[in-house]
Design a protein around this nucleic acid. Structure first.
Lengths: 354, 354
DNA sequence: AATTGTAAGCGCTTACAATT
DNA sequence: AATTGTAAGCGCTTACAATT
């Protein structure tokens, strides 16, 4: 229907004006008489004009493109955030590259280079286990990191921001929640992928804090973390299985993620251990799995939508206003109580959702 | 560390050669002496050169960019495909825009325009309920549609391909599967979003075929489809609830998707109806939900990985070889039998995975 | 013949000059 | 003063010419 490729020169020629005028009309800028504006506008439409973003980029050095880097969109927690961020950015005129790194530093690096060549206006880092300080983000491009561990936010160069929960206090609260429900020997269950168990890790640190606050002492046998290389659910199940086979006693499990919690549930279920009574479990992320699973899994709503909102708001601020200060947005969370922490479970398979 | 912006002119100048030579070195093309090649290569590296894809695009009219359009990445079926496609394309040097339309024609259209401005080399359409023939894809850009209904593939202009299951035969087999398991009154349950119940719809058509083959007759009351506007799980649950409230009898449900099946399970469970015995259910997509749910849901593995493979292979073929023929790849599927079609369910909550 | 350089072109933006 | 036009520049590619 339209000629293969019509440029503003073609329009200028057909309309008997200069390219500057065409450009001004098309961008609603400059002083152009209403008549010309109208006429050229219609002409462009009629000629089937499609602007070339590449040329625009070369002219203005803006791409209206954002790179979203995430370890794993197949995880609902991240995919929710990413989807929300993408949608909102789109409404602000930005199109997103969504890059899945699978927590592989090599891929992360390759992607980063690619995005630099593509001249993205900004970056969103959703999750990722490595310390942010270690990342190699060029200081020229503003970015916001969501739910990312970062020990030394003071070192950051460039304009960036952090959005996330207070993870340390969250893990603390999860552990205390189990303690309040009568648990004495609470295990800390985490998928090994990329995480290091050290007090600098806020997740682990929060667990330690809670033990302290609740007058319990650390038993290293209850730290369930190992060098497996499988899905976090399978790995978690294996870790729980190994512990139980070694007769390590536990009456509570703080699981770093609902997939991890699900693995624990599956193993306990297979062993006919009364979940919610003999062993209580709390997961994290409020994924659909936690709701659908029987028994349904007590979990933490981390406010993903809010995170996405804040991330977009802050990023656009950084891009447009070129602020250089370090921002730090903390999003509230809340525990959702379900069957895995509710004592004797009545009438299991057929009861209604909570 | 590197100067804010170094171009091939800077390199040419610093290396005392022409830009053509630099370009040739950087792209491994043309005849350049090994010595120069080596020297300029190192120089570029050292100067921290980052090529500008925008300029490259303008020069060559290739972007190494693919647009992936999908209705809903929050659905595992699509997110699996999209993730796989993206990963594979990336390995072939292409970066992807992932566009979520939510089945909204307006958004789909806006995205399409955006992608055209961005000059994508190709398009992947993963899912989507509207008929492909109706879409407004410029004939200049090659594309492949995955799992998309298309009545008249003969009308296609441009270079394109279809990848998917034989959906009609799949729905047929699902229905027959229930019939073979003794079901007499089999309901067809589908989320209303975007689907029209007409024989042209292969899903519905396959159901009709099966009724015919199995010697049953169509009862319109057993077509569960309605103008709700909620998640497919909730909608399915509501549809089943409504039917049961109207005392419509059914002993089997063919659900178009595992989320839909899950909704049915939830409603039957709430009513203490024996799933697998009194009512058998088969879902579709082999999502994690179907496995995790109790009772676990019989479903269909549609070969998503294979679909992604084929889509990438075919698309790259279209892009590189500029073939104009219409390709049509059919991927095999297989039914996975689980508890919802297995008769009396023993020892439900604690039994092991199948 | 092998290697390297010149210059136009890709499709825009925008400072500034020129016209009305 | 309001409107419009000129021309350079953004960073590449590539046909072709020029040099060794």
């Amino acid at each position: 229907m339209s000629n293969p490729k019509v440029s503003i020169y073609d329009i200028a020629h057909a309309g008997n004006v200069s390219v500057a005028t065409v450009s001004n009309v098309l961008n609603g800028k400059g002083r152009v008489s209403p008549a010309t504006r109208e006429r050229i506008s219609a002409l462009a439409q009629e000629m089937g004009y499609i602007p070339s973003l590449a040329a625009k980029t070369l002219g203005k050095n803006q791409t209206y493109t954002i790179g979203i880097i995430t370890p794993d969109v197949s995880n609902e927690f991240f995919s929710n955030i990413v989807l929300e961020v993408e949608t909102q950015l789109y409404e602000h005129g930005y199109t997103s590259y969504i890059c899945n790194t699978g927590n592989d530093p090599l891929r992360e690096n390759k992607y980063m280079q690619d995005l630099m060549q593509r001249n993205v206006d900004g970056l969103v880092l959703a999750g990722g286990t490595s310390d942010l300080g270690a990342s190699s983000i060029p200081s020229s491009v503003p970015y916001v990191a969501i739910d990312r561990n970062s020990s030394n936010s003071s070192h950051f160069k460039g304009s960036c921001a952090l959005v996330g929960n207070d993870v340390r206090s969250m893990t603390h609260d999860m552990t205390c929640f189990l303690a309040q429900h009568g648990c004495q020997r609470i295990a800390f269950l985490i998928s090994s992928k990329g995480w290091v168990i050290a007090p600098e890790n806020n997740r682990y640190g929060g667990y330690l804090d809670a033990l302290n606050d609740c007058g319990m002492h650390l038993d290293k046998n209850l730290i369930l973390w190992g060098p497996h290389a499988m899905s976090s659910r399978t790995e978690a199940r294996r870790l729980v299985a190994d512990s139980l086979s070694e007769d390590i006693e536990m009456d509570g499990i703080v699981a770093m993620g609902d997939r991890v919690a699900l693995g624990a549930v599956e193993e306990l279920r297979a062993r006919d251990i009364a979940i919610g009574t003999d062993v209580k479990i709390i997961g994290m992320d409020n994924s659909p799995y936690a709701r659908i699973c029987r028994p349904s899994i007590t979990t933490v709503d981390r406010g993903t939508k809010r995170m996405a909102n804040e991330a977009v708001r802050v990023l656009l601020g950084l891009i447009e206003k070129k602020r250089i200060s370090v921002l730090n947005v903390t999003v509230p969370y809340r525990i959702i109580e379900r069957e895995t922490t509710m004592g004797p479970i009545q009438n299991l398979p057929f009861n209604v959702d909570r």
